[in-house]
Design a binder for these strands. Structure first.
Lengths: 107, 107
DNA sequence: TCCTTACGAAAGCAATTGCTTACATTTACC
DNA sequence: GGTAAATGTAAGCAATTGCTTTCGTAAGGA
């Protein structure tokens, strides 16, 4: 349900690069910012947006905040896009949701 | 090499919907606009952007212009994203490009 | 030829984006 | 407690975005 925010997040090359950086390694806000030629607050704002899109998680460690990509978020986005590539899946999904609707609810 | 524009294009829900509409059926600008609650020129602008991202093609037919999704463009975007999901591929690509660089050029 | 249909192009506008420079806050360390 | 380090927050600003209304233009039909 976050596909809009997630695609918006991914659409920016800087944010894609950030995601690559924290994909397998936890990095502090400052360490991430060091990779770019913009100021630290700018990166901080990108990180917030990525958080809002459920694409990264944060963990506090002393005075630092360590960021790490959130695999579930990436997987979710990937699934949504798979449906987009092959919209037969999308039709199927709509049909399935219609059926679910009959006994009332998501799970 | 259009990934930035393509992702930007995809990031807008309206443009995603347009792509779905013309995915398998050629539609006129007006017919597409009829599906939305914004004015026709607004859709025209979205269509232009989609064209710039190589995601749709146009064909003139009398006074109409018929739009159709461009599978190669979608495939290209999809490939780029596959690399993004699994960045082992990306590293490989970078390595390959570095090697290509040695004898000087793209192809 | 004149009118109508189907469009894109241009200009203007409010909202959003991505950045900057302050400033505030939290934690570690002496 | 006092200071330094790491970071988010706020406010401001130029550029971009997505839309609107208005106008121009090409093609078809009477």
């Amino acid at each position: 349900m976050y596909i809009d925010r997630q695609l918006q997040a991914i659409a920016d090359p800087r944010r894609r690069e950030i995601l690559r950086l924290v994909r397998h390694t936890e990095l502090s806000s400052g360490a991430i910012a060091a990779h770019f030629d913009v100021t630290r607050p700018a990166i901080s704002q990108h990180l917030q947006l990525l958080q809002g899109a459920r694409l990264v998680t944060v963990r506090k460690d002393g005075t630092r905040r360590l960021y790490l990509a959130r695999p579930e978020g990436l997987a979710e986005l990937r699934r949504e896009l798979e449906e987009f590539w092959d919209d037969r899946l999308l039709r199927l999904k709509h049909a399935a949701e219609a059926l679910e609707g009959l006994d009332g609810g998501d799970r």
